[in-house]
Design a protein around this nucleic acid. Sequence first.
DNA 1: CAGTGGTCTAGACCACTGG
DNA 2: CAGTGGTCTAGACCACTGC
Lengths: 266, 266
Amino acid sequence: MIQRMAATPTFAENNIPEMGIASGATPAFSPLYQQIKSLILQSLHRGEWKPGEAIPSEMDLAVRFRVSQGTVRKAIDELAAENLVIRRQGKGTYVATHAESHVQYRFLKLLPDNGDVNSEGPAERTIIDCKRQRASAEVARALCLHAGDAVLQVRRVLSFSQVPTILEDLWLPGGPFKGLTAERLTDDRGPMYALFEAEFGVRMVRAEEKIRAILPDAAQSLLLKVEQTTPLLSVERIAFTYNGIPMELRRGIYRTDTHHYRNELN
Amino acid sequence: MIQRMAATPTFAENNIPEMGIASGATPAFSPLYQQIKSLILQSLHRGEWKPGEAIPSEMDLAVRFRVSQGTVRKAIDELAAENLVIRRQGKGTYVATHAESHVQYRFLKLLPDNGDVNSEGPAERTIIDCKRQRASAEVARALCLHAGDAVLQVRRVLSFSQVPTILEDLWLPGGPFKGLTAERLTDDRGPMYALFEAEFGVRMVRAEEKIRAILPDAAQSLLLKVEQTTPLLSVERIAFTYNGIPMELRRGIYRTDTHHYRNELN
DNA sequence: CAGTGGTCTAGACCACTGG
DNA sequence: CAGTGGTCTAGACCACTGC
């Protein structure tokens, strides 16, 4: 239900029954373009347009929502700023994807010390483990599940130029990722998040990381082939889908003698 | 020199001689609002409006630059998105400042593990050293100076609840920071970047950090009161002013047993 | 060429602030 | 109340894409 601020000359008291927003109590007022934005967001979440596909043109959306093109434009501007959508002049607006994103590995901030990302080629990936489990209290909290719920745990190593550099443990909610196997992961090339989109319809949109310095335990030092006295970067990530629902807990351990974690502050 | 895309009905071939952009060869075409944005940027850089002050209203700027309010608006939108300026409805648009920013310590991403920032109170700061020096090759490169140029080096410790948690070394270009002394730093309360604004007219706008895990050397472990076997976070920061000129090199060493470095990915 | 996003304008009205 | 930023519309034209 779209609410207008007040009577406007052309569309006084105009409302569209666009897919009911649960139709509960009318939410606190928000600007038209925000309402449009969240309608588009719902369509993205619902999979009306898949990653990589074009969404309708601004004019089409304006007609559909019965607002001016400028209002749709402002909504899409925000979605583009949040990397949910990509505008291509002369072509259209496309649903962002982790595949062919050309900023592949968008969430991986580890770079080689000699800035050239291409010098080392793509990461070699080794799946060490992929098993179904019950969520520990800690994992359940991070993923908004109940302790004991089914989760998938994956462990893998990423190597650059044959040097094992990253050891990662992932926990994924069992429901959305039903059917994920070690083979599926091993066979795949390209970012893991691209596979999640294509196979499970789960698109990661935003993430939070907590970073610490640690020493590896015995198993970790073995897998990364470093001494147990080598300080390593511990990176705990929670990744979210469209509606801010956490869909992945990831604990990475990074070697930082030849690489570094790069961050930009604004 | 403002260049318009082509003849527009009202302002055909209209140009303003607003403060010459070095007047060199006309730069490749850019949209009007980008030109306005960079004119405003120059005024900020030049100090026409100081941090915390209001800039002219959108209407005033529109008149001054002879464009419509909407175009000025779009320019200011981008400046606001980059945190260079803050909009306050009903009041005006203000030059952003590190003082009273209410997101104080905007660039400090270290948080206590029990999310509550207020539980530990403000950081206690101890200046250990502040001396004039000649830039090493490495420092010179980071600050775009020549090796041997005058730089200021500062070393300080930040403690939370009496626990020394951060050890920082700073290098600042000698020119812009002429007159900075240990006393000036010690007497000051509030963020260091706020002092830089107020006393030296240097506003930090953006920064890049390289993060690694390290073990402290003898001096560092002494100052932070940790064993030399305790892994610590090494954070190397280069901070930039308006025009992307590097004005600070900072090497921080963070304890991460009670705190963590928090990052958001989009 | 038609269709898309990108820029620019002009004008109306709203919401908020402070005197 | 006047002045500010915030929203919304309508319409013109530009730049780019692909047929």
